[in-house]
Design a protein around this nucleic acid. Structure first.
Lengths: 108, 108
DNA sequence: ATCACTATCTTGCAATGCAAGATACCCAAA
DNA sequence: TTTGGGTATCTTGCATTGCAAGATAGTGAT
């Protein structure tokens, strides 16, 4: 899997998942890993960025089976950023897919 | 337009376009600009990388209306790299779109 | 001469995924 | 007791790559 593809998209995926319900970092890694490869070293710094930018807020919660979990919750700003990112992604993805499509059409 | 989205995808787009016919740098900028924003400062270093990696070969050709054009041609290695990239992109893109799709389903 | 269009190239910055490693809690098995 | 595995968080530093900015240069029209 080309790591470069994920640039910028991970933010969007995390914010999309947080839009459904609050999640903690380790949980996000597992949720996204079901779709494509991802590592913890990507998620934790990313969550810190989202926090700094005011897109998420956090709270701690005991778990009973390990250390406390730090849950992340989308803020209003985060929702706006998420929606913008999703819109941009769809436009971009469509443009790329149509380019690729034309090429493979002409190939045969 | 989120510049991060383009990481890795530009390589693929350039190689896809070169798969149809040889093109020169400036031409590639214009071809891709029809789909999404792109700058010359991205394309020329990218083409140099593709050359270093053996994915393209080049030749000069007079144009009559400006300086000589440096045409780029996909090598066999380049074709293989292109096909792999396209395959990976489609898998990744599908995964991301399905994740986004589920979110927007539950939202609306 | 001056401007616009065409065309190429380089430098250096910014963003970000990730490998690697550290820390720490809980539980079960040896 | 201690060893190991699963859960959970965090940091450092590297590699990749898009792009702004600027340099260079040919052609043709004003």
């Amino acid at each position: 899997m080309n790591a470069q593809f994920k640039k910028g998209v991970l933010d969007m995926c995390v914010m999309a998942l947080l839009g459904l319900r609050d999640r903690y970092g380790y949980e996000l890694v597992q949720d996204i890993s079901r779709r494509f490869e991802i590592s913890e070293g990507s998620i934790y710094p990313l969550l810190r960025r989202l926090l700094t930018e005011g897109y998420v807020s956090t709270y701690l919660q005991e778990s009973g089976e390990g250390p406390a979990r730090k849950y992340y919750s989308l803020t209003a700003q985060g929702i706006a950023a998420r929606d913008l990112l999703i819109h941009e992604w769809m436009d971009f993805s469509d443009a790329v897919c149509s380019l690729i499509g034309e090429i493979t059409d002409e190939k045969g």
